[in-house]
Design a protein around this nucleic acid. Sequence first.
DNA 1: GTCGTTCCTGTAAGCGCTTTCACTCCGCTT
DNA 2: AAGCGGAGTGAAAGCGCTTACAGGAACGAC
Lengths: 366, 366
Amino acid sequence: MKALTGTTSDGRTVRRGAAVTRPGREATARVGRDATIYQVAARAGVSIATVSRVLRGTAPVADATRSRVLSAVDELRFTPSRSARSLAEGQHAANGIVFPDLSGPYFAEVVLGYEEVAAELGRSVLVLSTHGRQAARQMVMDLASRVDGLVILGRTVGDDVLADLAGRGLPLVLMARDPVASADTVSSENTASARALTAHLVHDHGYRSFAYLGNTTTSRDTSQRWAAFRSVLREAKVPVPRAPTPCSFDEEDGRVAADRLLRRKRPRALVCANDEIALGAVMAAEELGLAVPDDVAVTGWDDVMAARHSRPGLTTVRQPMRELGAWAARRLHERLAGDASEPRHEVLPTQLVQRASCGHHQKEHQ
Amino acid sequence: MKALTGTTSDGRTVRRGAAVTRPGREATARVGRDATIYQVAARAGVSIATVSRVLRGTAPVADATRSRVLSAVDELRFTPSRSARSLAEGQHAANGIVFPDLSGPYFAEVVLGYEEVAAELGRSVLVLSTHGRQAARQMVMDLASRVDGLVILGRTVGDDVLADLAGRGLPLVLMARDPVASADTVSSENTASARALTAHLVHDHGYRSFAYLGNTTTSRDTSQRWAAFRSVLREAKVPVPRAPTPCSFDEEDGRVAADRLLRRKRPRALVCANDEIALGAVMAAEELGLAVPDDVAVTGWDDVMAARHSRPGLTTVRQPMRELGAWAARRLHERLAGDASEPRHEVLPTQLVQRASCGHHQKEHQ
DNA sequence: GTCGTTCCTGTAAGCGCTTTCACTCCGCTT
DNA sequence: AAGCGGAGTGAAAGCGCTTACAGGAACGAC
């Protein structure tokens, strides 16, 4: 290492010095300039290559050298710069998840399941909620440049964006969305369970007039449920509502929509696109002096916590929210590990949960 | 631009070529190599500096040049590399949020409020849930190297980690945690509302025997509530429980803890550290054939959705969960914008929500 | 005409890592 | 005694941007 060391650290010292005095850098709140690998190398009397090797364990390093490097790292509280590493490696060791809105237990649970597995696999996770903003495309593209792979929920962004992303070779996992390009997809089962739910209402309870609450254009999940709902009614020769009663996916909107609906007609059963709408609907019914389920039956979807505690207990369909996120995280990881097999389209099972809001049963569950 | 252009693009072309053929790069799933600023520059017949200027708008560029660059960008579907930009700028344009666990409506709402504001301010957000993992320190440090600022909830990590982070000049906002170093903090009001809640139970309802359910060591919030609860009892000369009944913050644990407790003693009122525990406790009471609130009163904290829908309605204290996240995001942004003023310690107001689970009132809130 | 000025643009030096290549020792074989 | 292979290390080229600095050109003003 003779004179070389000196040269190295000197050369670098000059650079650093120049950088520090360099004007024009906006004054961020950052104060204590982090140590760089050059400083560590200088202190340990080795080259930066060796420091890197010690830290990453990519090549044998003599014990004596290693420990010198390690103490230098320690003394300087050195933490390698993530962006420099990413730039050099061409990887981020991070992946993202995009959803239309984080509100509501559904998205929260999905993100939880995702984060847990991703963290386990050593990947950082970036979240982006588009909130239906106009700038969604831009935001997603920006996110894309920070990650190695992306999970996208529902119809957050258009097919063109997906195609663009896929075209860049960015591994994608789509959730609750129709397959696009070469991306993997995960969703939970909708058709069979929506059929089972509707059949239960028609055949076990004998209801003959229905309404469906919820938007069916913003999500593949709900449009599938709506379609299954209709087909069961049609097959049973029960009047089929022309269209769903539009309503966004929160409680207040469910309450308002149900209130308006119940003042006009009086369907015997309200099938709602998710639990929050359903809970809002129950509230609206009670405000109008209608008893649930005796005057009007109500069902939800998801089986969120409040569904279990509400009065009456809400009949709903449980979907494996965390598992959806977890599956996506695992699949993305496989892709990033080099799996180039055909896209997979996973459908996770759901479960009909009968409680009191849809009517009284023989063996009451609640 | 004469021969210069040629030189530039050539020189770069050689580099790129070398990079592409360069062996050893692990085969990630990435396929379609993204375009770089060099290719855009070559195509538009300008230097990379000009491309950068067009894209960032940092200096005047002739209209003709600008449009040539823009078309090149378009044709090549160029998206600047985020890591290169971060490295050059010394900034990430991202910030992170760390919490012990994402489960439960509380954390979900905080994160939502945070994400919404951060995104609005043009910052990407990284989330990290430590899940009480051993590697928490490592994970947080890793996260720290990817962001310009960090929000940390509760006692996720030790003071030493915080000091280290702060020492590096990383702006920090602490939530629901005792002030440390020079970090800003936000929390919601605990003492006054816990006093009001307890006083209501003692004075308005006249209860004389109490239990407190929930861990008080893992969070400043709950330990403050516990302290306030005790002091009101002491002042009212009501027997004070020696210690809280330990119980983690989920429903199932609440149910189990309450079940065990109610089989031994029979406190007249159960004050719970959050709504989930309370809901679990209500369930346990009912399973034991006890009526809520007639045999045993129960109160929660947070006012999550299920609290409103449960039977009986849960008396609780509403805390501005989203606003906590939003405040943190805004404060962090101010810090990053250069605000170097004294650390702020914000306390957001809460609100006592009286429903039926604590006993019957004159004017029933339901 | 000459001399600022104002506009545009290019050159090149970083930013802080990773990794290839080359080279020096050493201990062992033949 | 010459050769070989492996272990350990350093030099330097990249990774893809941003930006200070240095002109060149066009335009008025005197």
